[in-house]
Design a protein around this nucleic acid. Structure first.
Lengths: 94, 94
DNA sequence: TGTCAATCTAGACGTATGTCGAAGCAGGCA
DNA sequence: TGCCTGCTTCGACATACGTCTAGATTGACA
């Protein structure tokens, strides 16, 4: 792995390296799309904090967001998760 | 995913969330074992900094270390990588 | 025993991160 | 137009992180 590849991929792992974001990612990826209000309800954290974590996931390229009327819906980007999964498999020859 | 699961798994992702550690992990996992001196030579960083990153990978459960004579050898723990890879696959139904 | 080489630990320093409350923005509705 | 609700942005704060230099530790060997 080159340094450039590592610099490009590390932010995705970093984004998943927080328990709150890992659970958020799990919830988002478990369905086609989910409203921020449903995500916020699942945690004992303030709205701004959840919004911050969702922004980190978005900027890491792991999720997309779309506003429809009053609500914002998040969805997973499967190709990003496959990229990470594939990297770990290649790294695990046995 | 429960909060407990997330709290347990997030540190592994977090450990891979730094470009230096991701490259270290890639180098370690690409062979059966590798000497710290070879790892240090591959980076423009001080020995203590590499040692620090290796400790993070070790405490995350991703690698093992073993001292033999003057040198310390690191090896990957495949079951940990498979755990992460499996999680990402489950999270990616399509 | 003394010395040398490889590695780790300790302490310091600047920056990044996670969290919050307060304020701002966007869209629906009276 | 004005107001309410859902979500984001802003600013602040304590803590964690990445890096370094200096010093400690471990093992080999004369």
């Amino acid at each position: 792995m080159t340094d450039e590849q590592a610099v490009g991929l590390a932010p995705m792992f970093k984004a998943l390296g927080d328990p709150v974001r890992l659970r958020l990612m799990s919830m988002i990826a478990s369905t086609t799309e989910i409203c921020v209000c449903d995500l916020t309800d699942a945690f004992d954290l303030s709205g701004p904090t959840i919004s911050h974590h969702l922004r980190v996931l978005r900027e890491a390229g792991l999720v997309d967001s779309e506003r429809r009327a009053t609500w914002v819906y998040y969805s997973a980007k499967p190709e990003a998760l496959r990229q990470l999964s594939g990297l770990l498999e290649i790294t695990t020859p046995a």
